[in-house]
Design a protein around this nucleic acid. Sequence first.
DNA 1: CTGTTAGCGCATTCAC
DNA 2: GTGAATGCGCTAACAG
Lengths: 336, 336
Amino acid sequence: MAATIRDVARQAGVGLGTVSRVLNNSPLVSPITRNRVLTAITELRYSPSQIARSFASGKTFTVSAIAPFFTRPSVVERLRGIESQLTISGYSLVVFNVETVARRDACIRNISCHDRSDGVLIMSLTPREDEVLALQEAGTPVVLIDTVAEGISGVRIDDVYGGELAVRHLIDLGHQRIGFAGDSIDEARAFNFTSSRDRHIGYMRALDAAGVVRRPEYQCYGVHGRFEARILTRNLLQLPEPPTAIFAASDTQAMGVLEAARDLGLRVPADLSIIGFDDIDVAEYLGLTTVRQPLFMSGQRGVDLLLRIIGDENLGPQSEVLPIELVMRGTTGSIG
Amino acid sequence: MAATIRDVARQAGVGLGTVSRVLNNSPLVSPITRNRVLTAITELRYSPSQIARSFASGKTFTVSAIAPFFTRPSVVERLRGIESQLTISGYSLVVFNVETVARRDACIRNISCHDRSDGVLIMSLTPREDEVLALQEAGTPVVLIDTVAEGISGVRIDDVYGGELAVRHLIDLGHQRIGFAGDSIDEARAFNFTSSRDRHIGYMRALDAAGVVRRPEYQCYGVHGRFEARILTRNLLQLPEPPTAIFAASDTQAMGVLEAARDLGLRVPADLSIIGFDDIDVAEYLGLTTVRQPLFMSGQRGVDLLLRIIGDENLGPQSEVLPIELVMRGTTGSIG
DNA sequence: CTGTTAGCGCATTCAC
DNA sequence: GTGAATGCGCTAACAG
């Protein structure tokens, strides 16, 4: 059916190795021979079998990415960065969407025996200790994006610091009654998400540093989503003494907070200041004040790092921390 | 390094073939032998090489998906459907994100020589005639999602009918001055997108059928996006005699229209009725009246169809049309 | 520079 | 039921 390398060799009147060399751009081929091979290739409409090539060389030129909840804008943005950078390097991307804990576990477990890709990118899902061990033993190159684990390379930001940045900004504006809307503790634990938790720690630190007392009733947690955040914050805003500002653990949740404010006829930022996290696409559009993290770039850097590890097996665990910054827009303002 | 099938055979004291049979669940193995093999497998922590298996069998158990603009919610939703269905069938998904025309062409061209996947799903990008020919000649199983091309299998909806449905609804509510906000003609042509165009045809048909004159100044086109739609419709709503209703070619664009209305202080639906298309996630949340198409399901069905074609090479081109329906919510109302 | 050789790890024939 | 033999298409290491 399809022409093989042998057909090409015969057609060009050369040996197998020569054709292989031409295919792999080896300089050890005379221009004349190279041309003969090249014309034979086009004549036969030959295209090398990637599977055979992978099989023989042991490299698949494919990278896997495990990511939770494709639907989240931040995940999509990271995936875009990954895809783009892989494409540049001639790699393909196979994706795994994790929406249940069972699948999370299965995906991470399967990495060990996953020889169909040269390396794996794990997004936002923090491997547990036993999983880390298994991964290390398997020897598959792995890079974490948006998390850390001892002994595994990763690209991340400092979420705690980000939380501090956000809340300090609110405090600087004169706010004292500051609420927090973040991810459900149960959900986070089940998937082993850490970013909302860390941002919450930053929230508390900033409060403590400013000598503002933490109020438990100002802190709410729900399954990640706009709708959930809306409902939760609505309650929070109906407290006898409601917060004057809210820090949402993500822009998506901040959107819910915005809507809660609208539900209750509160003006933003006059009556309520709102700050999010991530700086996803719509944040600018909504005029949302937020803490920006380089999402697309996190994907790119993750790929860079992974390819470096793939290229040099005995490269120790590398960790890269990406910069974040406060982006002041229209949803935060001085108190009063 | 890693154990091979030969190691297992030796350890279990059986032949190579037997191990292979066990791996492939062949019934032609005695329970005793099977058990011996199984224990050897666990002892050696053996896991079969997928590449070798692909190589020998000629099947990769991988499917490629080419999709434009990962960022669009409708695309993500389809991708989720694809991923989920493939996972169920034990297939992997490799994705290609198309954001430029050059990449669109490259991706479609490369399918022909793409033996790393057993089949390809092409989303929203309609192959041109020459591309169709190349695809057919290559013999790679291909299924189109959200488009049609003569001679290629596909899963789609009737966009023209959808447009009619939307506009007829507006007419039924008493509207006569009905605007349309859709994709830029240039962009659509460059990528060969067809849905906005077809929905626009439906728009015109519904108008004609009701004897309503089409007004060119009521129809605007822009690069697909919320922001662009917002700007464009704002102009449209500032016409001396502005439309009382607008049909947006997608929910994303409808969101832009909603915002344009808010910009101008128009009440929805009292002053302006708005209807979208797709019924993406946020539509329900926004209370947006829209034409629902089964996005997630389109991915699932695309996979079903593709796997059927992969399983039976000489299955002729199949075409499946998914149902759509009008979803009445809060953004459309009788003319006030 | 070039042709030849030997596997890569498995599925799939066959004989037994 | 089971073991041994062949080859998938290519790369890599070798000899020339």
